[in-house]
């Protein structure tokens, strides 16, 4: 293999770091829970890296990633049928696929809006987001930490997510 054809890991990683959130959003919209989405993203990225050399140049990294993710979701469904929450043969899945086409463009805008929205959260709301996503604590752990019931933590986090979604929409 010529030097110019060698796979450039940092090129792939740079793209991945920039775009993985959009691919993850697609996976999440299908499987709807973090646990499965994390597993599928990991498998997706692994395959993307294996195929990257053969597929270069890639015109739309996100679209390609979503395509790979789609097959990974199918494989995952075979192994863990009960965990994937959307019927992959339903019209809903087609709608999700259609909606995901805009993910790359929307993703960038959402990030900017979300930054502003996070700053608009109450200090308490921001703490919860930090505990959940920054410290990566599960709701049950947050409940133990803060001396709250698990149900209460779910309600609080659900409300905060709702605030963020509405805030992002408002800034659109």
């Amino acid at each position: 293999m010529d030097k110019k054809d060698q796979v450039k890991p940092d090129e792939f990683l740079n793209l991945l770091m920039q775009k993985q959130m959009r691919i993850y959003a697609f996976i999440l919209s299908v499987v709807r829970n973090f646990e499965d989405a994390d597993d599928i993203l990991q498998e997706t990225v692994h395959t993307m890296w294996q195929k990257y050399e053969d597929c270069r140049p890639i015109e739309d990294f996100v679209a390609w990633g979503i395509q790979v993710a789609y097959y990974k979701i199918l494989e995952y469904r075979k192994r863990n049928e009960r965990t994937v929450h959307v019927d992959l043969h339903s019209g809903l899945f087609d709608e999700l696929m259609a909606a995901s086409r805009n993910l790359d463009k929307e993703g960038e805008e959402v990030l900017e809006k979300l930054k502003r929205c996070l700053k608009e959260l109450s200090p308490r709301g921001r703490r919860f987001i930090e505990l959940r996503y920054y410290q990566d604590l599960k709701p049950k752990q947050i409940a133990v930490l803060l001396g709250l019931s698990v149900l209460n933590v779910y309600k609080i986090l659900s409300r905060i997510h709702s605030q963020l979604v509405q805030c992002v929409r408002m800034h659109s």
Partner: peptide, 17 residues
Amino acid sequence: MDFYLVASALRKSTVIP
């Protein structure tokens, strides 16, 4: 879809300042 996009950004981006 917006909800999942926000959740993905929180989990997989640099968005938490």
